[in-house]
Each structure stands twice: as structure tokens, then as C-alpha cells.
Design a protein around this nucleic acid. Structure first.
Lengths: 234, 234
DNA sequence: ACCATTTAGTGTCACTGTGACCTTAATATA
DNA sequence: TATATTAAGGTCACAGTGACACTAAATGGT
């Protein structure tokens, strides 16, 4: 017979956003054991009474911390072992979420978390130590994000409803950590018919005004047929 | 407070192999409730005493049914909800495994499964109804396999140690369900320096003998810079 | 010995989409 | 009006694919 088991099962969303020309993720500070006082991902246990499925558990976590819904949310991977939590066997399902520049988001402290903050990421991931194996979970989500940005249109989900091609270029450059040709983005997004012109322009300083666009289908991700290749070698 | 929860957590490997010019997966017939008598994936609950982590639970399942180890194994996704198992909330972590043509594999009946067999897949997935949501899990694994075959070297893991370029071509065509140019595979595999010439040739009938190759690094998957594009439209 | 046949492997060209860089367009300010 | 500054489109080389023709190596029949 199979022995009875008891596995703590949680969902950990890695919530990405871009501001100040940097990629940030949302962290919360734990105020319960284990790792009391440590910063961690804003995850939590699946609630069998409340959650219908895993995706709705992830959506609920996102809503609890940021009060946002309808963001881009994607499952990254599932990590579980006997050793990652000192209390015993545990599993976590890692998601990543993309939200536009947070302005009026109410960062809500909830049970188990006393503080909430945006932490910038550098090219190698997160710079500060976190509870459990959360540095590694973030690394996994970051790699998935970088990879997807280079062959899909997900990056647009980090922008507000209306944006210019320069906004799009900046987002790509920040995430990939390298220069991206604006021409490439033009060809990709406009050539694949993903964007709709917004009647107004954006105009800053004394330069030529830029066309504003919005995604034709806000809830879809387009897969381009090739990856962006990166700079040519000499 | 978070309410206590009890979630059944299992691992379901989708074990692929190719023979008779068809892609097959391994199924077992359940002999316990629920779905007694139905065919299903050869999965099972994670054993907290025996398994150190999720990957080792998947490896154990594979070993139990096929007696193979060291195959290519990759996590596909995690599915969980209150409704997928009539007994209540459950989660399963889906893996896919690639094994070479099964010859002398002992298909072992184990607890909960009275019979084991290879079931062919057609282009739309599995043709017979299965227990739980296993048709859908297979669909997910199949999509992942098809996608990966078109931009990585995973397909080679479905072949024996030594193979010809024609073998490689056949595998690709069977999985993708379309014609693949041999020239493309040559360019990809030889151009990326993935293959080692084996001293012997393979010789069948009265045709020119074919060079045998083996993978230089049996445990690595190469990511080609482009996807195979499929036939040109006219 | 020579040829027909069959599969193995190579050569080549058009096509697609990217990187790099250049040119032209549109605005405000001096 | 000239200038500075950014927006957007034009062009070309390059890489890798699909398509297909061509050459190479073996066998068996005549």
C-alpha cells in the first residue's frame, strides 16, 4: 500500500514590473516562522475550500497583494522536495505575472506578511537572500521571462494600455540587458499585425511626436517565428 | 488563518517511444477505484518517505514500469483542481520521458495496475478514453514534445545509441506528422557538431551504406537558433 | 564488365527575417 | 529660419531554411 502523505502545497507568483529603468519583483516580509523576518515571494498555501484550481489560487494571491486582476499569468515550473522547508515535504508551483508600471497599487500586508516592497533585479537575478529556495524560484521565472521575451510578444504586458514603440524597445532592452534594434520590434509587432494605432500621439520636449499603439488582443501572446538573435559578432 | 488542507499529489509520466512508424505511449490498466478497469498514465502518488524530490518520484515511476533509468525526462506542467479526482482536491505533475525503441523492456504490473501496454497516438493525440483528465495531460505532453522537436535535438533521445541520419529523419517526420528535409537535419545536427561518426556503417539491401552516428553528449539537449519552418506555401 | 536501381550525401538557389546603419519626417526652441 | 532631437521608414548583408537537382556508393542482373 502507498503510505499516507502530507505535503504542504503552495503557489508562489513572481510578480514582475518595470520602473526606474529596472525590472522589479514584489517581495513580502514574513512575520511567522520559519524564516521569520525574511523577505520572500508573496505566495501561500493552496486553499482547498476557496480555490477551484491552481490557476485560481495564483490569481487569488496576486489579487491579495496587488489588488490587480486580469494580468498576464503563466505557470513556470513546480519545485518540491523533502528539504526545501524545514517542516517537511513541500511543493510549490511557481508562476510569473507581468503588471504595468505600478502607480496606485495598494500593496496590502496580509496574514504572514508585515511589509511589501518592490525589489530591483540585476542581471544575475536577485541580490538579497530570501526565505526558502525563493532566490532559485526567481531565477527560474527570470530565465523563462527572458526567453519568452525574445520570441513572443509578452513584453507588451508590462506596458500600460497605450504605449509607443520606444516604450516597447526600452522594456525589451531592460529585460534582455542589451541593445535591441527598434527596427526589429517594428517589423515584428507591426508586421504581425499586433498593434492598433491610437488616435493621439505622445509628445515630449521638442522632438517629433511618437505614435501611440495598443495591443489588438490584450489577452493573447503572439509567437514570432524566430528568436531575436542578439548582436552580430565580429 | 489558513485552513488545513489535504491534497493528493501525484506524478504522471507520459512515456513516449517510436516503433512501427508510430509514436506510442505507455498506459496501465487500473485495478482500483476510482476508474477501476480504465486505462491511465503510469503515475502515482509522491511517497514522502521514499522520494527526495519531485524529479526522483518521476524517475521512480519510470523505473517501476519500464525498468529503465537515465532516459530523457522533462517536467511539462502541473495540473490541479477540486474536481479532477472524485475523491477531492488533487494535483499531478506531468512529465514526459523519451525512450529508445523498447525491445526487452519488462513491462511490469504493479500495485494498482494489472496490465501495461503501448498505445499508438494519432495526430490528434490519444484515441481511447482514459481515467481522470489523462487525455488532456497527454495532449499537453504531446504539444510540448512536438514543439521541442522543432527547435532542439531532443528527438535523438528516441533513438538507440547509434543511428543513421535517415533514422533521425524518420523520427522527426513521425512526431511532426509531416515531411522533413534530410538536408535540414544534416545542417542542424552536423553543423552544430552534435554527432560523432561511429566506425561502422549500416547496410541494408543493395543500396549505398549509411554512416552511423551517436550523440557526442548523450545527456544534453541542443537548442538550435531557429525553428524548423515547415513546408513553404504556394 | 557493364548497367540499372536504390539509397546516401552534397551543391545550389530562392526566400524569410534579423542586425546594422542610413535617410527622411515632424516637432519645439533659439 | 536654422538647429537640435527623436520618430519612423529604407536598404543591404547575413544566416539558416525549404526545395530540388546532382553526385556517390553499394548490389544484382544481363
Amino acid at each position: 500500500m502507498t503510505r499516507p502523505h502530507s505535503i504542504q502545497t503552495s503557489v508562489d507568483p513572481v510578480i514582475f514590473t518595470v520602473f526606474d529603468n529596472k525590472l522589479h519583483i514584489l517581495l513580502v516580509r514574513r512575520n511567522i516562522e520559519p524564516y521569520n523576518g525574511c523577505w520572500s515571494l508573496p505566495g501561500g498555501l493552496i486553499d482547498c475550500e476557496e480555490d477551484l484550481d491552481i490557476a485560481s489560487a495564483a490569481t487569488r494571491k496576486l489579487k491579495e497583494k496587488t489588488n490587480l486582476s486580469g494580468c498576464y499569468l503563466e505557470q513556470v515550473a513546480t519545485v518540491g522536495s523533502a528539504s526545501r522547508d524545514p517542516r517537511g515535504w513541500s511543493i510549490t508551483i511557481v508562476y510569473f505575472a507581468l503588471i504595468p508600471k505600478p502607480g496606485e497599487i495598494t500593496l496590502a500586508a496580509t496574514h504572514g506578511a508585515s511589509e511589501v516592497r518592490w525589489e530591483p533585479l540585476n542581471n544575475n537575478g536577485i541580490a538579497i537572500p530570501l526565505a526558502f529556495d525563493h532566490e532559485k524560484l526567481i531565477q527560474m521565472a527570470l530565465e523563462r521571462l527572458r526567453s519568452k521575451v525574445s520570441y513572443t510578444s509578452v513584453a507588451a504586458h508590462l506596458l500600460a494600455e497605450a504605449f509607443t514603440l520606444l516604450d516597447l524597445q526600452n522594456i525589451h532592452e531592460i529585460i534582455l540587458g542589451r541593445k535591441v534594434e527598434k527596427k526589429t520590434l517594428m517589423r515584428r509587432y507591426i508586421g504581425s499585425d499586433l498593434l492598433l494605432k491610437v488616435p493621439e500621439n505622445r509628445h515630449e520636449g521638442r522632438m517629433r511626436p511618437a505614435q501611440l499603439y495598443q495591443l489588438k488582443e490584450r489577452n493573447k501572446v503572439h509567437y514570432f517565428v524566430r528568436s531575436m538573435e542578439g548582436p552580430r559578432e565580429e
